[in-house]
Nucleic acid binder design. Structure first.
Lengths: 247, 247
DNA sequence: CGGGTCATTGAGTCAGCTCAAGGCTCGTGG
DNA sequence: CCACGAGCCTTGAGCTGACTCAATGACCCG
């Protein structure tokens, strides 16, 4: 299934392989040599753009692939026993989704596009096979899964120990830092998700999210116009997120 | 470093290799063939018992190994930026710890024994190498990491969506089920951790944990004598954990 | 222009927190 | 053998941050 370039081309993302992708210092290929990136490229399937609300995979689907976010933004949702939805992560370009499916050979989460997005599908059986030949790819994938674990554990800590202000501040800083690593602004960005998504993710109600944003705005820590965020006072935001003054 | 059996023997666990370990249907060797288990055995280092409070590894330590819990119980703790501690997991025999260390090549958590325990140390470099030769071992390790991810996500959901009663009920059911998978009783077991550990893990204060236990006891859902738990009304406990009646 | 979605703002409530006191258990030393 | 202290746990009383409920505002799309 070698990739016959142009038939798959996506107008928003004209590059067609990992070697030329501007995200290849973040994504799966990191630490691979050029010739090995070529091998990886051969197994990756680049799909057409997916629209806001479309699903990349659905909870219960047989696990076949993991996916690299190429553009846009994706949320992953896990369903509780009693039918509630919990957002377990927001994923930006260069990040990998779908690793939840390995445990039971079926996805435990649903992945939904927050805006028009593109993903690279990486069939897992072929990635697995290639990993036995390329130790650095195997290592890289282990690392990505470990990163996912440590991210989840940070969220656990956030939910367990931090109040509403600290949770929102941490989320803003996380998105800011991840944007920055992709060469975008540290202070000025758009939130791809709704207030309701933020509340669900952080274990808060939509009203609380709104009030905290209002407070951050009033205290001149951020500027806010709907989903457009400008961080005005980065030290104050960091102080808010990382200092435990419950009072 | 082939294992010269008896020198390492631990009196509480006379079996000395994976092939004869009663946990080998839970632990890393699952799905490996007999001869492959032998290869895995050769790289595993079995340590002497560790005492309550001893550390298996410490946050910041260079990542060298993952560890299989052989007996006893281990908690893992992650430190927040401002010096608080968050327990991210309790690990029982047959479960693997240390996979947090892969992401940055140094452990982000500290692992501490909750009681006298024994662990099998699995040097990661050798596991990695062996994984390129044994695809089913590679797959197994991917699965274990994925399982860790889905476990963490369940905890996220618990913290984000469930009240104190539901959190405690879920923890009891989780320990009960994991004991059961090791051939122990579903209804009757000892909690290896303190009330304070439970509170830390579940994002509750020690007082709340105590009150919830009192309530479960009063409602004749569990019997409780210090750390000894007997589940009397399993359906009621399940109903409590899995039903969203916030009122 | 009307209807739907999403966000903001206000008022009152409550689950779990804080603070405080006291009980149980176990090990140590007189 | 008992007294004492240290940990750990339980119980009570009052407080508060985030929730619920409700109303209103802003924007988009047909």
């Amino acid at each position: 299934m070698a990739n016959q370039a142009n038939s798959h081309q996506c107008h928003s993302m004209p590059q067609i392989n990992c070697s030329s992708c501007r995200l290849n210092t973040l994504c799966l290929p990191i630490s691979l040599e050029m010739k090995d990136i070529g091998k990886l490229d051969e197994i990756i399937q680049r799909g057409r753009p997916i629209q806001k609300g479309d699903r990349v995979y659905h909870a219960g689907d047989k696990f076949r692939s993991v996916y690299a976010v190429r553009s846009g933004a994706i949320k992953t949702i896990s369903n509780t026993q009693d039918g509630q939805e919990q957002i377990t992560g927001f994923y930006l370009p260069g990040e990998i989704i779908g690793m939840d499916g390995l445990a039971n050979n079926s996805h435990s989460n649903t992945a939904i596009a927050l805006e028009t997005s593109a993903v690279c599908e990486i069939p897992f059986a072929r990635l697995e096979e290639l990993s036995t030949q390329l130790p650095s790819l195997q290592r890289r994938f282990f690392q990505l899964m470990s990163k996912e674990i440590t991210n989840d554990q940070q969220l656990i800590t956030l939910l367990s120990k931090n109040n509403a202000d600290q949770r929102i501040a941490s989320l803003l800083l996380s998105i800011s830092a991840r944007n920055h690593s992709r060469g975008l602004s540290l202070e000025d960005f758009y939130l791809p998700m709704s207030r309701s998504d933020i509340g669900n993710y952080l274990g808060l109600t939509i009203e609380t999210v709104s009030r905290v944003f209002g407070r951050l705005h009033k205290n001149e820590i951020i500027q806010l116009d709907k989903k457009h965020v400008k961080i005005i006072d980065m030290p104050a935001l960091r102080n808010l997120a990382f200092t435990s003054e419950k009072h």
